[in-house]
């Protein structure tokens, strides 16, 4: 039974550790990050890659793993003021944040509270931080009490790394790559098999996967969107009895690509 409605839900853009896909790039990045956190040889870790390749996913995954040990703080919205970061760190330790105290005193008190444990602060979309915030991150990382893990877009990230705050600092730079067409095929198959959508999984051939990879350019987020749209179209065709679209063909792939905007008419 082909239940496209249920199957397509597997490809929504939600971070769920159950559906972690062990692509070559993901595995290498994960190993490097875990090693850098464990060894603590670099107070600054940079994860750079194109938007949508899966940086946030891997960041969240590792952050969740460390959270169980009480060592991680995940910040997914970098639009904070200098004081906001201190507030987040205060709240993570269940400390009362007093707005009336000046910044330096707040910082000193915070370092006093954290000095006995090693903490890793994960900041997603770090390319949006401003100069002042970068300077604060540099100061905090220099204390060796905090380790920062910054995820950034490749283009902006490369420029940020050249800045004076980080150029001479000890840091680990990890680049997150795109998916290969064989990985796309494996991802689709494994995700569908995991929820027993075997019949739907068999509809995806290696040729189809190659075409999908070409449309998505190996981007993980675009891939998920593409499969979701494709399954929606198949669901519609099944519901309305359109025999032309009972199987995946180039026409359906083109329609999906048009719908998500990776190609234009």
């Amino acid at each position: 039974m082909r239940d496209f409605q249920k199957a397509k839900k597997l490809f929504t853009d939600v971070i769920d550790a159950r559906y972690y896909f062990d692509s070559a790039s993901a595995e290498v990045s994960r190993y490097k990050i875990e090693n850098a956190i464990k060894e603590r040889y670099a107070p600054l870790i940079f994860l750079i890659g194109d938007p949508g390749v899966g940086k946030s996913y891997i960041l969240r995954l590792i952050s969740d793993e460390l959270k169980n040990k009480g060592m991680s703080i995940f910040i997914d919205h970098p639009f904070f003021d200098k004081r906001d970061l201190l507030k987040i760190l205060y709240e993570a330790k269940n400390l009362k944040f007093d707005k009336t105290i000046n910044f330096n005193n707040l910082k000193e008190k915070l370092l006093e509270e954290y000095k006995n444990d090693n903490h890793t602060i994960f900041i997603d979309e770090a390319q949006l931080l401003n100069e002042e915030q970068f300077e604060l991150i540099r100061i905090l990382s220099d204390t060796k009490i905090f380790q920062f893990m910054l995820s950034m877009h490749k283009e902006e990230g490369s420029a940020i790394l050249e800045k004076k705050h980080f150029k001479s600092r000890t840091k680990e730079v990890i680049e997150y790559g795109r998916l290969h067409q064989s990985e796309v095929y494996r991802y689709i198959q494994s995700t569908l098999f995991l929820e027993n959508h075997n019949e739907i999984a068999s509809m995806f051939t290696k040729v189809n996967s190659a075409k999908i990879t070409k449309y998505c350019e190996g981007n993980f987020r675009t891939l998920k969107k593409f499969i979701y749209t494709l399954l929606s179209l198949l669901e519609y065709a099944k519901k309305n009895g359109i025999k032309k679209y009972t199987n995946i063909n180039s026409y359906l792939l083109k329609m999906s690509a048009l719908d998500i905007g990776v190609i234009h008419d």
Partner: peptide, 10 residues
């Protein structure tokens, strides 16, 4: 609409 756009693209 998608079908029409696809035909046009083809």
């Amino acid at each position: 609409d998608l079908e029409r756009r696809c035909r046009k693209l083809n």
